[in-house]
């Protein structure tokens, strides 16, 4: 059997019409979930490390629950549950953004927790000794260092997040993969389109991970 692949239908015009908007949504979803996830994740990490049981316990429960459920189920459940609770549907794209933010926050939270714990106690002593309070110590001393130390890991998690955005197919949101799927159906060429889709995911993810590696060596020099 010969594999007869034909990519000639994939013109720039076709890509521009069907794929670009999907790519933009995938990137938008990645960026929103990254920023929102890091913010919420940092808050969760601080709650877990607060030593106050009514803060640390709910945060731990949330993080462990999110990390124990497959992402695709969270996506589905959120999409189906919200209309039941509020009476009106959110739309697949907005629903995906909220779900990804909530889900990724659990992972970013663990990274930030490790980052915060990696700051030597002496740094906190020094900050307190200068008269800075808890909030100032976090804001100016602990979090900037934790964030900088963890930057490569945070970005690696973001690369995983970018790949995971393809799971929004479950609720029919129009992302990069969906764009290719539509093209494949229109031209009856699913094998070729999924191949190209995989290539695009690979190029983006691999480029980013190369960048992370370079960043890692640069940060190691500063420290």
């Amino acid at each position: 059997m010969t594999l007869a692949l034909d990519f000639s239908f994939l013109t720039l015009d076709v890509l521009a019409r069907y794929v670009i908007k999907g790519l933009f949504f995938s990137i938008e979803l990645t960026l929103v979930a990254m920023l929102g996830g890091i913010l919420l994740g940092t808050a969760l990490a601080l709650m877990r490390l607060s030593g106050v049981i009514w803060l640390s316990w709910p945060a731990a429960l949330y993080v462990n629950a999110m990390r124990s459920i497959p992402l695709v189920m969270v996506i589905l459940w959120f999409f189906l549950l919200i209309p039941l609770l509020t009476g009106k549907p959110l739309g697949a794209e907005l629903s995906a953004m909220i779900t990804f933010t909530l889900f990724e926050a659990a992972y970013y939270s663990e990274i930030m927790r490790a980052g915060i714990q990696s700051i030597p106690k002496g740094q906190i002593y020094a900050s307190y000794a200068l008269g800075m309070n808890y909030a100032q110590t976090l804001r100016y001393i602990v979090l900037p260092q934790a964030f900088r130390n963890m930057l490569p890991v945070l970005l690696t998690q973001t690369i995983i997040l970018f790949q995971d955005t393809s799971l929004v197919y479950a609720i029919g949101a129009y992302d990069l993969l969906k764009g290719f799927e539509v093209v494949g159906k229109n031209f009856n060429r699913p094998v070729e389109t999924y191949l190209v889709a995989a290539l695009i995911y690979f190029v983006i993810s691999y480029t980013l991970s190369r960048y992370v590696r370079r960043l890692q060596t640069r940060l190691a020099v500063i420290r």
Binding site: P120, Q123, Y125, A126, A129, Q145
Partner: peptide
Amino acid sequence: RAHVGMVFQHFELF
């Protein structure tokens, strides 16, 4: 603490 200076064994500069 703002008016009690402290110097540590490991410097603890930021």
